[in-house]
Design a protein around this nucleic acid. Structure first.
Lengths: 233, 233
DNA sequence: ACATATCAAGTCATCTAATCACTTAACGGC
DNA sequence: GCCGTTAAGTGATTAGATGACTTGATATGT
């Protein structure tokens, strides 16, 4: 098994595209040249170019829209990505994911409590208000609203790298948890715990925010542990 | 900008490949069918199949070796990935990365101190011994050895998800830091701080391990802050 | 004037069929 | 047993074409 592989033309094209995006000062959402123009500019055929483009697409650097064009993707500047190929977690991996969240999210709640201000707090309130409207609705929508609360809290902490980490963990966590949260009691308890965390953040009480987030995630973990031992019908 | 895009054949092929890997019980390193066989089996042409394969390759699910075949990649089971497209960090991003490490790595050192045993500790000792041989050597090798120490410590914490997070952060951190650590004094201080962390882990002293890791990373951050304000010649 | 339908041009998506470059295993010679 | 050569299998790329989609412009109807 060779550790050093020869760079392919397709590898080089990937680099050329990244360079083009960078030197062109392109931001997420900007349109890039068409595949025809790019294949001519780089003097390669379109299937070869498309290989490079698929690679960039898979990692969020570009978006390819059929009939429209190629656009710079939102993840171009990220450091950390959720694995898009994750379909099923190994036994125990979900619990490790929750433990990871228990390590990372409480300090973030504390950071949010220390630094969040007017507009930020109003936005977080809106997120929770939106979540409340889903308490009697579809699982998927409630779940999404709850994840939005966690994402918004991580964002308020003011560290983009940690926000990316939390976002990544929540993204891969998505489908697994959606199947599990199916009892009304958990919905309301979740919501109340989110409210308590928000109150601590609004009050600027870093210690309470951290403790409440940790307790909330420990609750979630406990529920999931039970579910893993007694799957619902 | 449409939020719902039509799935392409190439998208479907990506899913088919993931399914083939999963239902085949393939582990990282296992060889998969050739592109010729796969394109026949899925009734598509090789350029189309190769688009899907490049996507999977970019996210670590497979490795394509010219002349040899396609192999299941090491990242197939990961939840979190380093962004392979990261070439240059925005201003401030490196400091945020360090702050992220300051949040995550100290609790991991504490976890390692609580749970590491004989073989684990011996391996960590070997990592530091190896790093010591590079103190007078090339920057790249010393840097790699130092990163290995951090990775090994995160592994000893016993949470694979957090290990992936740390690995991802260290991976994207790599090239940036390599250019900065160029003074002998920092090399020795780094090494001594790593030794102190190891001793706390060996002693099973979770509090000391955590405090020393936090102090070490704060030192690293301080050095980097100075370098960012006064770039070396 | 505004709304709707149609069309043309540009764009991405996929195909067909071939050749080129690399790896690995088998075989022969020393 | 070791080394060199060859053949077979494999990934990598090309050239040229067609099909499917999007977007903007134009024409038509109310």
């Amino acid at each position: 098994m060779s550790e050093v592989t020869r760079p392919t033309l397709s590898d080089a094209l990937t680099e050329r595209m990244l360079e083009l995006i960078r030197t062109g000062g392109h931001r997420p959402g900007d349109r890039l040249p068409s595949t025809r123009e790019l294949s001519q500019r780089f003097a390669v055929t379109t299937p070869t170019l498309r290989e490079a483009l698929r690679r960039l697409e898979a990692t969020g650097a570009i978006e390819m829209r059929h009939g429209s064009g190629i656009y710079v993707g939102p993840a171009i500047e990220r450091l950390v990505l959720p694995n898009p190929n994750m379909r099923e977690m190994r036994g125990g991996q979900l619990l490790e994911l929750l433990d990871a969240r228990i390590v990372i999210e409480p300090p973030l709640a504390a950071m949010a409590a220390r630094r969040a201000r007017g507009d930020d707090l109003a936005a977080l309130e809106r997120v929770l208000g939106e979540a409340a409207t889903h308490l009697r609705g579809e699982d998927a929508e409630l779940h999404e609203a709850n994840m939005t609360f966690h994402r918004a809290t991580a964002r308020l902490a003011g560290n983009s790298v940690l926000h990316e980490v939390v976002d990544s963990l929540l993204t891969v966590h998505g489908a697994e948890q959606r199947e599990i949260l199916q009892i009304f009691d958990d919905r309301r308890r979740d919501h109340e715990e989110h409210r308590a965390i928000l109150q601590a953040i609004v009050a600027g009480d870093a210690t309470a925010a951290e403790d409440r987030m940790r307790a909330h995630l420990a609750d979630v973990k406990s529920v999931i542990e039970q579910r893993l031992h007694q799957p619902p019908k």
